[in-house]
């Protein structure tokens, strides 16, 4: 009986705290669930490190808050006017003052080490197997696949009235980005107009898209499924209405999709005859 309690209760708590929805037949659904109190389940190597860092941070911070609360509760009772009519005159205690300077420093160092490790890991693009180009627009995302024939398409928000049953409100787009799992993907981000921000919480990707500049980061998606995110920099009236939806599929499925996509989103290069009026002069 007790044994069941010890397995069921943590499981229930974990469910409340976990992120990903139940794994459907076709894979993970990475978005928030109702009453979710913790991060979305990490689905990339970077996200796993960020997730672990946050667990560490949370425990340290909860401990600090409880510690301060405990002292306050004690003080409020023990040294109330009623219980301690004569106040002391102590205004110094060198040992204490050293301790409450040194111990926080040690705690911060303990945080900084995994924190910086995570930072450098998430930043450094490992040898990438493919590149995805992301462009922010008011108010939709465009995606390009330079390594697969350089085709591009727009991914536009689907308003509530046009949703099909089962499609999540405010997260559905007409054309999701299709990406292969278990692949190091270089992400190149820029904007066509104002600053936007491309963010996928479950992959721990979040980077501004700034006009006139290209930002780079990387990701690697662990499992097939649907990954959702939202624009994360105020960009005008429809800032809340330009979601991101990644459809992660197996490498084989991705290769198949690329063939079809190349045709459907053929780039303009083949349309017109090149007219060369001036040729490059090399010094």
């Amino acid at each position: 009986m007790l044994k069941r309690l010890f397995t069921l209760v943590p499981a229930a708590v974990a469910a409340m705290f976990s992120g990903a929805g139940a794994a459907l037949a076709e894979g993970v659904v990475a978005k928030s669930t109702p009453w979710q109190m913790w991060l979305q389940e990490p689905m990339s190597p970077s996200a796993e490190m960020v997730h672990d860092l946050n667990v560490l941070l949370m425990w340290i911070e909860v401990a600090i808050v409880i510690f301060v609360l405990a002292i306050m509760a004690y003080v409020m009772v023990r040294f109330s006017e009623k219980n301690n009519p004569t106040p002391s005159k102590t205004t110094h205690h060198t040992g204490l003052e050293v301790a409450w300077t040194a111990i926080p420093i040690l705690i911060l160092v303990a945080i900084a080490i995994p924190s910086l490790k995570t930072l450098y890991f998430a930043d450094h693009t490992p040898d990438a197997d493919m590149t995805l180009k992301v462009k922010g627009n008011q108010w939709y995302w465009s995606y390009g696949y330079p390594d697969h024939g350089d085709f591009e398409f727009d991914s536009v928000y689907v308003p509530e009235e046009e949703l099909k049953p089962g499609q999540p409100r405010l997260l559905t787009v007409d054309t999701p980005v299709v990406l292969p799992v278990d692949t190091n993907i270089r992400l190149l981000l820029t904007s066509n107009d104002v600053i936007h921000n491309w963010a996928i919480p479950s992959l721990a990707v979040k980077l501004d898209t700034t006009p006139g500049r290209t930002n780079e980061t990387w990701t690697r998606i662990n499992k097939p499924g649907d990954y959702y995110g939202m624009c994360s920099e105020l960009c005008g009236v429809n800032h809340g209405f330009m979601p991101i939806h990644i459809k992660a599929v197996s490498k084989e499925e991705f290769a198949k999709w690329v063939v079809g996509a190349k045709e459907e989103y053929a780039s303009n290069d083949t349309d017109k005859q090149p007219v060369r009026l001036a040729k490059a002069q090399v010094r």
Binding site: L53, N54, S232
Partner: peptide, 11 residues
């Protein structure tokens, strides 16, 4: 923490 901020910025 800049790395933690990857999931917290603008939330």
């Amino acid at each position: 923490n800049a790395s933690a901020d990857l999931v917290f910025h603008d939330t």
